[in-house]
Design a protein around this nucleic acid. Structure first.
Lengths: 217, 217
DNA sequence: TCGCCGCCGTGACTATAGTCACGGAAATCT
DNA sequence: AGATTTCCGTGACTATAGTCACGGCGGCGA
């Protein structure tokens, strides 16, 4: 499939002229599973659209604590890179390829020019940013107001949506890392969820049965 | 002082043409101390620049828990209103005037037009958004990684910067609300800070002595 | 086959923060 | 002045989550 085709499919809102110039000016870049794509303090010289794969965006503090923020999937863009790029600022987040990933890298001078030139690009950028902002707000709600059990349910729901499957093959240790908790705590909570019939755990596969109800004690 | 003068002073980056058209198209609006300026779920039909006063922006969940996010001061803008306005989305945050406040209200059709027309406006909008985004990231760091005592210190530091004074006249109950904690907890922590010479508390005035060191046990 | 390693489960303990109950001090109202 | 309200401090208790120590299990390479 040509790049042009792929862009049209993943970003249907883009006007034809924009797609054409994008094919010409942007460059595809590939990352292998597990590779770091962005580090705290790094400067952007380009922004990126995701064509293939899955990217995990997270925050890390000085002591090395990680905190999962959100995934980026095909058809989405790294909002932070877009804004930071225009202002020549550094990022405060980390991004790692979860699976092999292909992105479209757009040099910041074009990113900037297109904003005034293509309405669809302008709207895409703002909407990307707004969506991430909302996502952060929801995240804040959770860590500020919710207990671990609710946050775990929400996390599983997101994983389910992202993978489009009820069978998750994620390790308990990883979940604990994503939620900035500890393995033991998550292990116990999963047991509780399992007892109540929300999930089933067999070997290292976690099956989601229903996440529609809040856990009540 | 004329509006034009005030805009020039508070937003020195704006190009002269922009200031002129802004004076013509925007309208000033006033809010009294304590008045709500924005509610969850409300639609924006305009964006706003702060000319005078102090606005508290916070998040509220279904059960009425409040969580302080940041203050908006003269020379700043409500980033969320800018983006939501362009996409006709609703807000997920609340804003209340802390003191009597004057804002410049800009209908969204102009806000949108100026983005392509005035480079300085375009950069202002993006930079406002980026700054708020960073602020949210820092907030997430704190509630995810830090304990209450550190968060309290950070909170006091912010209050100090905002009020440009070492004497804060905020109640303990309010601090607890802002940090989504409880009065008793904050009371105890403040006592600890006071014992260690970071602050002094006399009647209902809190004097900040030094916030440069981390509290160690 | 043996030993190592990564992942997991569990009991016991600790730390942090939230809750409850109470009483005191100061301000405000009538 | 007396009553009411608001804010504050404190001790005691509870809940939630993090930590420690240990042992089990399955995979995998030497």
């Amino acid at each position: 499939m040509t790049d042009e085709h792929r862009i049209r499919q993943l970003f249907p809102s883009f006007e034809p002229d924009l797609v054409n110039v994008m094919v010409e000016k942007a460059e595809t870049r590939e990352y292998r599973e597990g590779q770091m794509m962005m580090r705290t303090g790094q400067h952007f010289r380009s922004t990126m659209l995701i064509l293939e794969g899955l990217i995990k965006v997270y925050r890390e503090d000085e002591e090395g604590n990680e905190f999962f923020m959100y995934y980026l999937q095909p058809g989405q863009a790294c909002a932070l890179s877009m804004i930071c790029a225009t202002r020549q600022q550094t990022s405060q987040i980390m991004a790692r390829a979860v699976t092999d990933t292909v992105i479209l890298s757009i040099p910041l001078e074009w990113m900037d020019k297109w904003m005034t030139q293509y309405k669809t690009w302008y709207h895409f950028v703002l909407e990307s940013y707004r969506a991430r902002f909302e996502e952060l707000l929801v995240t804040i709600d959770h860590i500020a107001f919710r207990n671990m059990d609710e946050r775990l349910l929400f996390y599983l729901k997101k994983q389910q949506e992202t993978s489009k499957s009820n069978l998750l093959s994620i390790s308990i240790t990883d979940i604990a890392g994503d939620l900035n908790s500890s393995r033991e705590v998550i292990s116990r909570l999963l047991k509780k969820l399992s007892d109540r019939g929300y999930i089933r755990m067999d070997k290292n596969i976690l099956e989601i049965i229903r996440l529609d109800f809040k856990p009540v004690d």
